[in-house]
Design a protein around this nucleic acid. Structure first.
Length: 426
RNA sequence: GUGGGUGUAGCUCAAUGGCAGAGCACUUGACUGUGGAUCAAGCUGUUGAGGGUUCGACCCCCUUCACCCACCCCA
């Protein structure tokens, strides 16, 4: 067996059928983003480690970044997320931009994780952000975009759900229980982990953290109060706006949604698939009003989210919602080559068809006709053209409809029109 | 970083410690100017790698590598 040098762990080779999925997803993301008026942008994939040091979660930078020193001795990182780059780009032109900013992007990111289902080391991510407004209606717009995406890929409210919470609401409750502010960040991540732990272990951790039994009971009480969102004017307005935008059916209040990144300041949300064979967030985001100032700009409110390509693709694949025929040739027409003598005739005809606007491939060498037809069939082409001695002698070509299995011999100058008519019928 | 699972033909997978197999795919032919369907024949192996136990190892033991799954974290 030949030894093939393996790919880098956690990366994917995009064969044509895989690339077709990525491109399909990209086109849907573009359609959804643009339908809400968002502009596409992109940043470098290489950034200084400094950009992430203060703003991202410590673990993300220390444990999960691909970092190296360049030849000049500077620390460089393959970007693990886009938001710090976005913040810098805006800070650099803060006075020149027209607000509110609506920006989106889709590109590759790297995190040094142990690969597993839904999590790779190289992945593509959709980022979309609304910057310069601090209103619940702006928060709702991002959630409505998620709902629009789900509709576009065919995920119903029974299949996908968007869980929403607000850190201000949680912090207010913790404060009400007398939990000091220096303990609240730990408390947030403790609450974030609740659904992953056994109840008694979670209780014990809370007490270890320094909570009193009353504070623990109080925390459990407000977490289990499904109507708590009514005490938050922001969440109430978010839900009202979603109702108005026709996106409310995808959205639920969930007191346990906190999110790991420390820069979130208000609303936070995550989307999951309900069928639940994969218990991983499809996407996550929230409001981060302090980040712009943290990278050296003036304070500027922002809300946004990121969605990786891996989980959504897995879910759509399991549901059979990915596009069909992804390994097909883009060409609809194959011009066959009868023999070496007639190869130039076939090359010329294929060129004519292309100039007439058809996607046409010419078989690249003389071969047995069955082989060439089989190739056209396997590649998902719809029409095969044959020019043999008989046709050539009469200035004709034979065009075969591979779907119907019928063929006709016609004047050569009518070939493009006749092929167009065959393709039109399908 | 921790724990579990799996590595056998191009692919998906079989094989009580006793001759390494099947399906699919591929090649050829039935069909010398016509694909898909059918039939026939044929091709395909360092059983991940290295060592050990044994008369004999795909199978048992040790080491190692790769991949998958879970934890951690997160898109």
């Amino acid at each position: 067996m030949k030894t093939i040098i393996p790919s880098v762990k956690g990366t994917r080779d995009f064969y044509p059928e895989d690339m077709a999925v990525r491109t399909w997803l990209y086109q849907i993301l573009r359609k959804v983003s643009e339908s809400f008026g968002y502009q596409e942008y992109e940043g470098p994939v290489l950034e200084t480690l400094d950009l992430y040091a203060a703003k991202s979660s410590e673990e993300l930078v220390r444990e999960q970044s691909f970092s190296f020193t360049d030849r000049g001795g500077d620390w460089i990182t393959l970007r693990p997320e886009l938001t710090p780059t976005l913040a810098r780009m805006i800070a650099q032109r803060q006075q020149q931009l027209t607000y509110p900013l609506r920006w989106w992007s889709f590109g590759p990111f790297w995190r040094y994780e142990k690969p597993q289902k839904g999590r790779l080391r190289e992945f593509f991510q959709w980022n979309i952000d609304l910057i310069g407004v601090d209103t619940p209606e702006a928060d709702a717009e991002l959630i409505a975009i998620i709902a629009a995406l789900f509709r576009e890929v065919g995920l119903t409210p029974n299949e996908a759900v968007i869980l929403v919470n607000d850190r201000r609401l949680v912090n207010g409750q913790l404060e009400r229980l007398g939990i000091p502010s220096e303990q609240r960040q730990n408390a947030l991540s403790w609450i974030d982990r609740r659904d992953k732990m056994r109840p008694e272990v979670w209780d014990a951790n809370g007490l270890e953290m320094g909570l009193t039994a009353e504070q623990l009971a109080g925390t459990k009480a407000f977490l289990e109060n499904t109507d708590l969102w009514r005490e938050s004017e922001g969440l109430a307005r978010v839900f009202a706006a979603l109702e108005a935008m026709g996106a409310r059916d995808y959205v639920r209040y969930d007191s346990g949604i906190i999110r790991g990144l420390p820069y979130y300041t208000g609303i936070v949300f995550e989307a999951f698939d309900v069928s639940g064979s994969l218990r991983r967030a499809i996407l996550g985001g929230g409001r981060y009003n302090n980040l712009m100032a943290a990278v050296g700009g003036d304070p500027l409110p922002a809300v946004g989210f990121a969605m990786g390509d891996v989980v959504i693709s897995l879910i759509l694949k399991e549901l059979g919602r990915l596009p069909a025929g992804r390994d097909a040739s883009p060409a609809r027409v194959l011009v066959t080559v009868f023999d070496a003598e007639r190869l130039p005739v076939s090359l010329a005809l294929a060129s004519e068809l292309r100039r007439a606007g058809l996607k046409a491939a010419c078989y690249p060498e003389p071969a047995k006709l069955p082989r060439q037809l089989k190739y056209a069939d396997r590649m998902g082409m719809h029409v095969a053209v044959v020019i043999g001695p008989d046709e050539a002698a009469n200035g004709q070509v034979t065009i075969k409809d591979l779907q119907a299995g019928k063929q006709q011999t016609i004047e050569r100058e009518n070939a493009a029109a006749a092929i167009g008519a065959v393709l039109e019928r399908e």
